[in-house]
Design a protein around this nucleic acid. Sequence first.
DNA 1: GGCCTGCATGGGC
DNA 2: TGCCCATGCAGGC
Length: 997
Amino acid sequence: MASSAAASGNACFNSNCKEFVEKTRKGWRRRTGEFAELCDRCGSAYDDGKFCDAFHLNSSGWRSCESCGKQIHCGCIVSFHTFVLLDAGGIECIACARKSFILTPNPAWPPPSLFLPLQPERIKDVNNWNPIAGSGPVPWRQAPSLFNASTNQNELQHKAPFPETTVSIDKLNLSERPFALLSDNNRKDSCEKLMIGKLKIGVPGTLENGYAGFNREEAHKSCTSAPWQSSYANSDLSAPSFCLTVGSACKNEPTVHSKVSVSVPQQTTLPIPLPLGKQLGGHATVDSAGETQVRSSKIRGDGRGKNQLLPRYWPRITDQELRRLSEDSNSVITPLFEKMLSASDAGRIGRLVLPKKCAEAYFPPISNPEGLPLKMQDLKGKEWMFQFRFWPNNNSRMYVLEGVTPCIQSMQLQAGDIVTFSRIEPEGKLVMGCRKASNILTTDQGSEACCNGNGVATNGNASTKHTKFSEEVLANSTKKGFSSTTHVAATSARDETKMSDDLVNESLGNNRPIRCKRKGSTMGSKRKRLRVDNDNLVELKVTVVQAQGLMRPPSSGAPTVIVIEGCEFEEYEQEDAPIIGRPTISHMDQLGEKIQWVQCEDCFKWRKVPDNVDLPSRWTCSDNSRDPERSMCSAVQELTADHLRDLLPHINKASKKRKASKQEMDLVETLDGLDALAHLAILEEGETLTASPQATTKHPRHRPGCTCIVCIQPPSGKGPKHKQSCDCNVCKSVKRRFKTLMLKREKKLSEKEAEATCQKLQPQSAGQLLDADDIQESIDDAAHLSPQHGELNNEGSVDPNYLNEKKSSVDDPNYLNEKKSSVDDPNYLNEKKSSVDDPNYLSEKKSSVDDPNSLNEEESSVDDANCLNEKKSSVDDPNYVDERKSSVDDPNYLKEKKSSASPFKGEFDLNAKPERDDELSPGSDSGSMIRIIKRAAEQYVRHCENGSSVGNQINGDGAGETNPSNCVIVSGSQQADVDHNRPLPISTAASLAPNDQ
DNA sequence: GGCCTGCATGGGC
DNA sequence: TGCCCATGCAGGC
């Protein structure tokens, strides 16, 4: 046979030809991954599909197409992809298969584990393995069995297949070359295990079994059950429930998928509900793609169904991946397995631990711990070479892919993301795809079913009804696409709700990558850093509740109330799904009428509207048609500071509650909180949800297009140096930073002199710290209250600048890194801890809080665009980073810092700015006081002039130079206590607690 | 000191 | 109880 001959030079690969030619043509793909180089004549024959007719006429393995009778050399590599196996037995040429729209998702290459001994010792025949991916013995060993699989598969699908009953080895043509690769034992095993066909597609998504094609959206429309979902769904049943669907049911094919053909490996579509342990020897199993396989109990040497992968490894390829993978319409994609990246996997070690069964099933067998190089292609078509190897572990093996770091980085993956392994036929390439964590929210809905534990597959979109609770999350999920393609029609509301809960929790930063089929399987106990602190979970859940409160039932369509386990759930018809409403504050006015306060999105003033009005998510004064006098942003706010404070009782309540728990928190835990918040912020942003595992990543990923200093500089400092005259962003930033630093130091020196005298003037009472703490918490809470989760500005509203700043901070890997590294730094932690013991520091904080000017300053600084820019650029500034870093290394600096850290023990302030640390330090106490005095004087002057200085911006030192430490806005909020017509900042309102007034 | 390698450990199932 | 596998970690480079 042709493939048995080695190609040499320009000799035709066809052993029956061997013609020497200058230029060869590509033929079939060889096991090595290369293509058979053929002469023109043979190449033409191959292209015309007549190669076997010409050269293999006398070979065995010829079969007739059940439809057209065409003879196909099924036993040959050359014709391997020109036919499909029919469920009823026999074969059909691909042309007929296309015509008849019957696509039998015969897995082209069942898992090799079916053919290989399952113990590690199976791996003896390494010599027959070619290290090139995708061309391993699996397909080739399996191939022979394809030729004679004449079992009535339909029957087998519905009956328990019994081993060794349907296929006789005598029926198999074993004379073909591929089989020669098998040892006698393997051959026998292979014969005993009825092998099914290949998966050849090209047929637009018409799914014989409802599995292949992954055209889930369509499947949803026309099929009553999605078997692969059902496989989850029934995972706890004791008997198989195959849930096979009839392919003809799914004929509406989206054009986008028309070219995509997917071979679903057994695990993906395996509707086998039996737990692994139950799928043992002789039990009937249904193979991939729903096709029955007769599996010999013999192969289950250890009594476990090793050919069954755990559900968490079942591939869930996305439409996007399919599209990317299937650019070639002739490609057939066989999803093999997937794995969620652990911190270790995504770490810098570059080792990706492979699930043992997956490794043994889909990768070449290896007997040498050194393993084999494995070529893999990513979704972009770039090829990567990994080392597939193992090491002995407890009488077993641990399989790893080494050298994956570049690839993982290239794909911008991190812990929690999922890598998928697929195979493209006929090339046999191994393809490594990925799913970002954010998509897992949707793609894992099936797996959520596993998490549910009730065994019922759940899918947010499966049902035509939506629970109010999950609407938003599900909507988000739907947008992402994948979930909409996987459906189980018979989804109970309960499951859906439960799942939704999971989704919500995940979506809100609750370690979204966790799939809890195996408790902590992905983020196990050792994955401390990957977990969000329980406290944060509570807070996040509260946020969910708040979010739910934003749901507004549509005017049309009353919900159906169902009671599940004592809890009432409202369900709405899909077209009447709840909408996300504007957050309001319900209140009873003086007349005893129920009203609600709503905040204008533009001016952030609070307006009163009747209680029964459903407000859109975006509401502005102009929508205030019921109160024409206040239907413009220019109209004064009738809500006074006191009122606002009264309306927000939860601020104080929450702060007390948090205070209690906060004191129990250690500083490390707060890191989780920080991360959670960061994740939440990112989630809100609607972009890729950075995994909580990000906390474990030393080098947070930089986004494409990131213009931060890290990204725009050549790696490792290599590359051309910037000239002194260079005015690029980097250089400008560096220069600006330098200038700022110099100004700051100058100022610091001068202020130091006044420190001693000023310090005496400050009221010192450590006992009042709690009030300050309260206020800070109130501010935080108020920020939480805000729909934007942002900082409240002086108008009692969210300042967009602040939001942008916060957002960019969270987006900025440097910023997060800095935060993270600070916490990692024991010095930093000590410093934080000791700060609360420092009376100077406490008094400074206290006085700052007592002083409305100070508060305003703190808040207004974030309003200052210059200031924000400066802050931001500082983070991007390598000098700045270095400076910060060196400061930490500097014992003097640490000494100074030691007494200046935040008094908010156990709580990190995302607002914290490095520069502000300086301001808050004892060394700059006088600075604060000076500023306070200065501002008071200026304020007084302005007040005398016209009293309207809102938004006026001055520099703390009076200089025109932007100075991060001095960017101060004296805003009108300072007069908030005297001007009740002005919106009161919630933070200020909070500070007006009775004991403060 | 940092990285790599190979193995050990231990929690989860 | 045994297996899986995420992670720790010692030792070498």
